[in-house]
């Protein structure tokens, strides 16, 4: 196998795919909660993706085709090589000695919640994994998630499968039914993490969030991934990506992550044009 070769590729939904990349040195070190940065080609942007699993010399990541770079990534198939693949970056998630925990995964965030839940479970914690999706058709990783926890609860926004409503709704239901959580992990879209933290703050349950700010080098040089935590500047690549969710200034991160939204939309349109009209509907 060649360096950074895509050894396996699996389409999970029309929008989400999973690739396993040959990177033995990274695979030997990677722990739950860490991420890699990749570039598709020599002109490409550096994008961070959280490690979904690391075994047998392979790093698996799951991506959603949201922008030009992930669309370009999706053009590669088994046997193709990525141009660059760097990691494992960030600090691993702390998993020891909590007791009973709830892990919340939102959509693609489930791909990150899965290894965290698995590591927490293997470390002897009792793990309730709550995975939320918009609708039944795009539920991913259900089987893998069920093996990685004590209880799995799938939620759908439209009620087409499992609990009807958001993951925060399910969590609140569980808490109200008398489940005592020692810690909550919320992993997913910023809005989901923000509201999960509002809820757990009410019940006074310590909560860890996995932050995904804009990032360039990922090695503690550029400072692009900074966020305010408890009134102090922190860097997701060095101090994170996990932070105390009750201390994070979510509104600031939400605004900062939208910095290049117009540019990204334009690049995506350009990219789809290059791929041909058919993809525009895809």
């Amino acid at each position: 196998m060649k360096q950074y070769e895509i050894v396996k590729k699996k389409v999970l939904t029309p929008e989400i795919s999973q690739i396993s990349v040959y990177a033995p040195l990274i695979a030997a070190k990677a722990k739950a909660g860490q991420f890699i940065i990749l570039r598709v080609d020599g002109e490409g942007e550096r994008i961070p993706l959280t490690i979904s699993s690391a075994e047998n010399d392979l790093i698996t990541v799951i991506y959603q085709k949201v922008g030009a770079t992930t669309l370009a990534l999706d053009q590669l198939n088994e046997g193709d090589c990525l141009h660059d693949f760097v990691g494992p970056l960030g600090e691993p998630t702390h998993v020891d000695g909590y007791g009973r925990v709830a892990v919340l995964g939102g959509g693609l965030g489930c791909a990150i919640a899965l290894p965290v839940a698995k590591a927490l479970h293997e470390a002897g914690n009792q793990v309730d994994l709550i995975g939320g999706f918009k609708t039944k058709d795009i539920v991913i990783l259900e089987e893998e998630m069920s093996k990685a926890c004590t209880n799995l609860y799938i939620c759908t926004d439209d009620g087409s499968y499992g609990f009807s409503g958001f993951v925060t709704g399910k969590l609140e239901e569980l808490i109200n039914s008398g489940v005592k959580y020692d810690h909550v992990f919320a992993i997913g879209p910023l809005m989901m993490m923000k509201f999960a933290c509002k809820l757990t703050e009410k019940f006074n349950i310590p909560t860890t969030v996995s932050m995904n700010p804009i990032m360039i080098d990922g090695t503690g040089m550029c400072g692009g991934c900074r966020l305010t935590v408890g009134g102090e500047v922190k860097f997701a690549c060095v101090d994170g990506p996990d932070f105390d969710g009750h201390q994070v200034d979510f509104d600031e991160v939400i605004a900062r992550n939208a910095t290049y939204r117009e540019f990204e939309a334009e690049r995506k349109r350009d990219h789809l044009c290059r791929l041909g009209g058919g993809a525009l509907n895809g």
Binding site: I216, D217, M221, C222, G224, R226, E252, A255, R256, T259
Partner: peptide, 13 residues
Amino acid sequence: GLVGVYSANEYLT
């Protein structure tokens, strides 16, 4: 923390 505040390292990179 506002959008448009860069470190020189980020801007130059």
